[in-house]
Design a protein around this nucleic acid. Structure first.
Length: 146
DNA sequence: CGATTTTGACCCGCGC
DNA sequence: GCGCGGGTCAAAATCG
């Protein structure tokens, strides 16, 4: 799970929205479902907005990309199977923890952690290595149907 | 014109 | 067995 300030988080891949559902638990009915535009790729992405942090969305990735990014994956052999977590990834995790702490202490000020953290831009382009496959847990339960 | 997004309906699984 | 929730697909509209 990563957090982002924008809806269209460009992770270097093209996503096609295939559905949207509202969560009655949140004042912001917006749970979007995305899929990779590559037919060879069965990657799914679920994006939900945080009720406490409207500026933040929870992005959940399902599956692994089996193709290169059509976007700005500059001419590099950068492929998956990178055991080293991306710096951006780590920063995201850190953000998560901070966010969690803020929520516990007092989420009334969601900007609290924004002030004490470096400017994390939503444009998390891979600098020169690995993708974000590392975070994908055992979500691959093969629940595909139809 | 093609790709992509939007909205509603439909289907499946689980709970009661 | 029925109802509810969540998830997915499909057709139409829109944008590039």
């Amino acid at each position: 799970m990563t957090k982002s300030e924008v809806d269209h988080l460009e992770d270097g891949y093209r996503w096609r929205k295939y559905g949207q559902k509202a969560v009655k638990n949140s004042p912001y009915p917006s749970r979007s479902y995305y899929r990779c535009t590559a037919q060879k790729c069965n990657v799914k992405k679920r994006v939900e907005r945080s009720c406490q942090d409207p500026t933040t969305v929870i992005t959940t990735y399902e599956g692994q990309h089996t193709h290169h990014s059509p976007a700005s994956l500059r001419g590099g052999g950068a492929h998956m199977l990178s055991p080293s977590p991306t710096t951006n990834l780590r920063r995201s995790v850190l953000l998560q923890q901070v966010s969690r702490g803020s929520s516990s202490a007092g989420y009334t000020n969601p900007n609290t952690y924004h002030a004490g953290l470096p400017p994390l831009l939503p444009q998390i382009h891979v600098p020169d290595h690995g993708l974000l496959q590392d975070i994908v847990p055992s979500f691959t339960h093969g629940n595909q149907r139809r």
